[in-house]
Design a protein around this nucleic acid. Structure first.
Lengths: 359, 359
DNA sequence: TTGTAAGCGTTATCAC
DNA sequence: GTGATAACGCTTACAA
């Protein structure tokens, strides 16, 4: 029955014959401590298996080297990857991450944030798709950043903007207007352009867009794609969808593919919708990519597991997480808040796109 | 430039005209405190926006109400779901979770564990497939449990056990032998039985097993399935695979499906292998489930996204996470260590299984 | 029922 | 270069 006592700085001090203060200094690599002393202390610490108590340290220094991560859910692979990027970068900077999922429940989010604050996190990163999590941050004293912000937009606004230019939705620097706190986001407009350009280069001229729910991301991707296509004299029809991406994507694609003239390529708002479109093509007996090309966005794992593999515009999820930490650190250092960060997508070629049949 | 000072218990004490000790008592619902006092204190706390400092509390109570989660990676949806179960249950019990991914790097795992210990977590849950993470736990003082343990087994042992009975690999209570610390695992043997029974009931008599890498889980699933089949006078051929589940599954399935007599059903070690088998059937022009049935294990999201949907034996990942917390809490309470926990799978019917063609 | 005081394990400030 | 000593914000005996 060995009741193991915690070994404290005092034990190390005693064993190495110095004061606690010196132990601290020696162990932290403080400049003004005799080399011999440092060695003696380090040996003693080693021998006793001393591990500094971060709790006590945090109490006195006022910094816990811990950040809080509020995430909708980690079982969505998209968020999981972002989370991984966050954790990795945080670890590199010697920060731990406390995580909690709110599952879209604002009161839960609020409670978790409270817990974080009580545990004296040095900062908070909120991953959010809906933006509802923002309200939670309102009275918060801790530095905070948001990653992956994608607020819903009113249908009316979609209508209006769909005809107008992209600019209305972004501020002068191309960042999302109205974001209340520093954030890192995906360059949806640019991603839309990339997708459109790819199809154009393959020779497609009859292209349709399968939208998602009325969110900013869906809208921006559409606008980006349309801008490029119109410059080439190609118009882009679009269909809006509901919440069940896969199934709605399938149904909408079936509809589009039965219209005349049939599009030769589909731009899906995201990969899930894209896979739905693949299912639709399959059920209609249309060969992909022989008779129909499909391109998605995000590059979730599923895109690589279907047959044919889904060509997509990759979202650098891991890096977005890493950037969120960088941004948070700079906010914590009271550096002039950079406002936001917008990461570019990249084309991932798989089997679902090819030149149109006639070409 | 409002330098916001932290509001402490003393502020609340001052405002409500009592001592700090009484504030604590009032706020913790201590029985012996005047109702009037409690109210006064609560009001003051409310007014000042007082939030108890868990760091200070942890220092004095010696418990941080935080647990550490060491996870191989969270971008594997399997682990993500387990993690979610862990976080949820932990939150219900008023514990926060500090998480870190080791990415299969033992020295990293060791370092993260050290950080956890330094931050004085009350316990640690290690999610592990390989078992390598165990060594890390060796000298650890903190209570720890493992979830999802699936150690590799030597090929020789596989050979031997494949002919022998299941018992050799499990202890008397059906738990995994040799697990050095309390753990919660999936009932792989039972899951194998469930899969076999399902196919038997559909009328299949020519069945083959697509193994995974040489891990305990793969072996146990095979043995479970074989036990049931042999009782029905059906033999079970098996093929071992390499590490790339999807592609290896496809290749192995192509091989099996070209042998004579062709199996009418395939049991895949996991869903990824199962999807590979689906691809194989597709490329050979075999209709699923008309000419071939396929069943997998785990029920990852992908299983629901392919066409046809993959029938599978579901692993209750979320609940396994929850159980891990329960187990950890009981270890922390010095309750007689339950040793381990084994959760049963359940059949999830999708489109990939049906009676064999002749039936 | 409430207050006083000690102490949790560090680090920071000042002396020396 | 090193050592006392005073915090950090809270809980918990012990006293009142």
């Amino acid at each position: 029955m060995q009741m193991t006592m915690r070994v404290t700085i005092k034990d190390v001090a005693r064993l190495s014959g110095v004061s606690a203060a010196t132990v601290t200094r020696a162990l932290q690599g403080h400049p003004r401590v005799l080399e011999a002393t440092r060695l003696r202390v380090e040996e003693a610490a080693q021998e006793l298996g001393y591990r500094p108590d971060h709790i006590a340290r945090a109490l006195v220094t006022g910094t816990s080297r811990t950040i809080g991560l509020l995430i909708p859910t980690v079982s969505d692979p998209y968020w999981a990857e972002v989370a991984e990027g966050i954790e990795q970068r945080a670890a590199e900077e010697d920060f731990s991450v406390l995580f909690a999922s709110a599952h879209g429940n604002p009161s839960r989010a609020e409670k978790m944030l409270d817990v974080f604050l009580g545990k004296r996190v040095d900062g908070v990163v909120v991953t959010a798709s809906a933006g509802a999590e923002f309200t939670v941050l309102d009275g918060t004293s801790a530095p905070a950043v948001v990653v992956g912000w994608d607020p819903p937009v009113a249908p009316a606004e979609v209508e209006r903007a769909a005809g107008a230019s992209v600019v209305a939705l972004l501020d002068e620097e191309g960042r999302r207007a109205g974001a209340p706190i520093p954030h890192v986001a995906f360059d949806d407009v640019g991603a839309g352009r990339i997708a459109a350009r790819h199809l154009l280069e393959l020779g497609h001229r009859r292209i349709a867009f399968l939208g998602g729910p009325a969110t900013l991301a869906a809208l921006l991707r559409l606008l980006g794609a349309r801008a490029v296509l119109e410059q080439a004299g190609v118009s882009l029809e679009s269909a809006a969808l509901g919440a069940d991406a896969l199934e709605d994507g399938r149904v909408a694609a079936v509809g589009l593919l039965q219209s005349e003239p049939r599009p030769t390529a589909l731009v899906a708002f995201n990969d899930l919708v894209g896979v739905g479109a693949l299912h639709a093509a399959h059920s209609l007996g249309l060969a992909v990519p022989g008779e129909l090309s499909v391109i998605g966005f995000d590059d979730i794992a599923l895109a690589g597991f279907v047959e044919p593999g889904l060509t997509t515009v990759r979202q650098p999820k891991r890096e977005m997480g890493a950037r969120a930490i960088d941004l948070l650190l700079s906010v914590m250092r009271h550096a002039p808040s950079p406002g936001g960060d917008r990461l570019a997508g990249s084309l991932v070629l798989r089997g679902s796109t090819a030149p149109p049949p006639s070409a």
